[in-house]
Computed example of a mutant assay.
Amino acid sequence: MPWMDKTFKGLTFLNALLVLVVIVAIIGSLIFSASDTFSTQGAAFLWKEVWDPVSNEYGALGPIIGTLLTAGIAIVLALPVSFGIAIFLTELSPRWLRRPLGTAIELLAAIPSIIYGMWGLFVLAPLFAKYVQPLLIATIGQLPVIGKLFAAPVLGVGVFTAGVVLAIMIVPFITAVLRDVFELVPPMLKESAYGLGGTTWEVVRNVVIPYTRIGAVGGTILGLGRALGETMAVTFVIGNAHGIQASLFAPGNSIASTIANEFAEASDQHLSALLALALVLFLITTLVLAFAKLLLSRFETHKN
């Protein structure tokens, strides 16, 4: 092997190794910094609801539930919209509209998260308080069981508003991936389906989606990862109130917003608790990625 090839192989190996070193360093520093909290609070830190820096009582349950709820709402709202946009861009859009519309969608990803947060607080939240939340309370809020999720108070800000803002933020990420994977479908497959008399919906359902489902899952997980770790936008509109409420309209907290709000004033045990929250968020993200890898491996096995 020529020396240039050996040098190139060594450099690429070092680049790959650097990623592992950084991940191990992050995990190690988080575990070390959070060890004080877990030694005093124990595993109960994960399911305690109380968060009281004055008495040094800390529980991660409220921020964990807030993080999962906001991310879940975001995915439920963003995935159908992203799927529809990607299908329109690849299958239905006229050529003259495809490029400018695709560029406009991608520009949404370039907007800083703090701008989304400010827009959510000053524009979206008042609209929600005046129109959306009263409507949901008067309709879905009257249903048994799920009606409790859409009960008062009408504040504008809250877990539901944070989920909607996150949905808007992750739409361009999921759309970009779905559009790229949909464009990878061989034209011959789609033309054959159309030649057999298939409609656009039948071609999408029977050809495009089965062929690209691995990439679609990857794009969805990419958006979910962005939603789980988002900080500033959520901090503006989630309400920043510790505790667990039955209503999605009530103020709440996420792991990222809790860290952003309290890190500057934290010290000693309080700081350790915040870093323990960071470790929990890291583990949640890791579990989500591991689940995605499991799904992808099953899809590949079934495909083969």
Rank of each mutant, 00 (worst) to 15 (best):
Val81Glu: 12
Ser82Phe: 01
Phe83Cys: 03
Gly84Met: 13
Ile85Met: 09
Ile85Ser: 01
Thr90Leu: 00
Glu91Ala: 04
Leu92Phe: 12
Leu92Met: 14
Pro94Ser: 07
Arg95Thr: 15
Arg95Cys: 00
Arg95Tyr: 13
Trp96Val: 14
Leu97Asn: 10
Leu97Tyr: 07
Arg98Ala: 15
Pro100Asn: 03
Leu101Ala: 13
Leu101Asn: 02
Gly102Cys: 00
Gly102Tyr: 02
Gly102Asp: 06
Thr103Tyr: 13
Ala104Tyr: 13
Ile105Val: 15
Leu107Trp: 10
Ala109Tyr: 09
Ala109Ile: 03
Ala109Arg: 06
Ala110Phe: 06
Ala110Met: 11
Ser113Asn: 06
Ile114Ala: 06
Ile114Cys: 04
Ile114His: 04
Tyr116Ile: 03
Tyr116Trp: 07
Tyr116Ser: 05
Tyr116Asn: 08
Gly117Val: 07
Met118Ile: 15
Gly120Cys: 09
Leu121Pro: 03
Leu121Gly: 03
Leu121Asn: 06
Leu121Val: 02
Phe122Leu: 11
Phe122Thr: 13
Phe122Pro: 01
Phe122Ile: 12
Phe122Asp: 09
Phe122Ser: 11
Val123Arg: 07
Val123Thr: 12
Leu124Gly: 00
Ala125Asp: 02
Ala125Gln: 00
Ala125Phe: 01
Leu127Gly: 07
Leu127Gln: 09
Leu127Val: 09
Leu127Glu: 11
Leu127Met: 14
Phe128Arg: 02
Phe128Lys: 01
Phe128Cys: 02
Ala129Arg: 02
Lys130Pro: 03
Lys130Met: 12
Lys130Asn: 09
Gln133Met: 10
Pro134Leu: 03
Leu135Asp: 06
Leu136Asp: 04
Ile137His: 03
Ile137Tyr: 00
Ile137Arg: 01
Thr139Glu: 00
Ile140Arg: 01
Ile140Ala: 04
Gly141Ile: 03
Gly141Trp: 01
Leu143Ala: 13
Val145Gly: 00
Val145Ile: 15
Ile146Phe: 08
Ile146Pro: 08
Gly147Asp: 04
Leu149Asp: 07
Leu149Met: 11
Phe150Met: 02
Ala152Tyr: 09
Ala152His: 12
Ala152Leu: 02
Pro153Lys: 07
Pro153Thr: 00
Val154Ser: 05
Leu155Asn: 13
Leu155Ala: 02
Leu155His: 08
Val159Lys: 02
Phe160Val: 00
Phe160Pro: 00
Gly163Pro: 04
Val164Ile: 14
Val165Met: 04
Leu166Asp: 03
Ala167Arg: 09
Val171Phe: 01
Val171Ser: 01
Pro172Tyr: 10
Phe173Arg: 06
Phe173Glu: 05
Phe173Tyr: 15
Thr175Arg: 05
Ala176Ser: 14
Val177Asp: 09
Arg179Ala: 10
Arg179Val: 11
Arg179Asn: 11
Arg179Lys: 15
Arg179Thr: 15
Asp180Ser: 13
Val181Asn: 10
Phe182Trp: 10
Phe182Ala: 11
Phe182Asn: 06
Glu183Ile: 10
Leu184Gln: 15
Val185Gly: 05
Pro186Cys: 01
Pro187Val: 08
Met188Leu: 05
Met188Asp: 15
Leu189Ile: 11
Leu189Val: 12
Lys190Asn: 07
Lys190Val: 08
Ala193Asn: 07
Ala193Phe: 00
Ala193Ile: 03
Ala193Ser: 14
Tyr194Ala: 08
Tyr194Cys: 08
Gly195Ile: 10
Gly197Thr: 07
Thr199Glu: 04
Thr200Val: 12
Glu202Cys: 09
Val203Asn: 10
Val203Met: 14
Val204Ser: 05
Arg205Glu: 06
Asn206His: 15
Asn206Phe: 09
